[in-house]
Write a protein that binds this DNA or RNA. Structure first.
Lengths: 140, 140
DNA sequence: AGAAATTTGTCCGTATGTATC
DNA sequence: AGATACATACGGACAAATTTC
């Protein structure tokens, strides 16, 4: 028996309540949200509705979900005093295409690609490595 | 009787097929996609799965849906001239670190990294491949 | 103007697969 | 190996917006 949704959809109401908990600090950054199964009993909603609510928060980047682990609040640490985020260290080089990336580009294995690499550190530790590949090609 | 989802989830497969129809021009910009009820019969999938596939295309801006009307293809080409730039096709996977990237992160070779890959096409041809690497969250 | 048909939106319940602990 | 947690998928029901007759 579906429960009617007068006015605001239930999943938005639930999303708002969860957002309030995160923004108020009741669920601190990095902390795990209650499991979906718990949220179903707390909000008396089906799991599909709970997942819809979490999807809203995920789209806005307020939470991140990992398979088998759970949903974390505020995965991006906010800027605060002593944290140091280094300027990205970048480099460019030319490399031969391995079989996998050759197939993506639709070129022969070993074809020359231009790779841009950007390394970002956080408090000294490498946080992300971004590599961009493109074909070396004549200018249009 | 739920159908198991080996490899690619069904909704992603369906989303890819629909994207192909749009990018190939089989469904021209501004045109209506088949109704969800039609797609269920065509792809032999439940409506929920169809809606999940459409949600993928909606997130990338490839389609827009209006209540009571339908789902429109490519409402805003947002690309000047005759060039067509597809929204990136993304995927996430876990890979063992090769010696080079292991050194960057300061981890052992073979350590598991999370790789996000985004492929952007231009006029059908692959333009850029962006790969972002990060460490898998350490156990709490 | 109004009723019916169409189409998307929301919600429920259930079952099973897959990843993590 | 078992328990826990998220992911995918099915089917049904009703609500709300739009179009059609």
């Amino acid at each position: 028996m579906p429960i009617p949704h007068f006015g605001q959809p239930r999943y938005r109401v639930i999303a708002d309540k969860l957002r309030l908990r995160i923004e108020s600090g009741a669920i601190p950054p990095g902390a795990l949200l209650p499991a979906e199964s718990l949220l179903t009993t707390e909000f008396r909603a089906s799991r599909g509705t709970i997942r819809q609510a979490l999807a809203v928060l995920r789209e806005t980047g307020l939470v991140a979900t990992e398979h088998g682990r759970g949903t974390y609040a505020n995965p991006r640490p906010h800027q605060s005093g002593s944290d140091t985020c280094s300027e990205p260290e970048t480099r460019q080089r030319e490399i031969p295409a391995d079989p996998e990336i050759a197939e993506i580009f639709g070129v022969d294995v070993g074809a020359i690609l231009i790779e841009n690499e950007s390394v970002t550190r956080w408090n000294g530790a490498v946080r992300t490595v971004v590599r961009t590949y493109r074909l070396r090609r004549a200018r249009p």
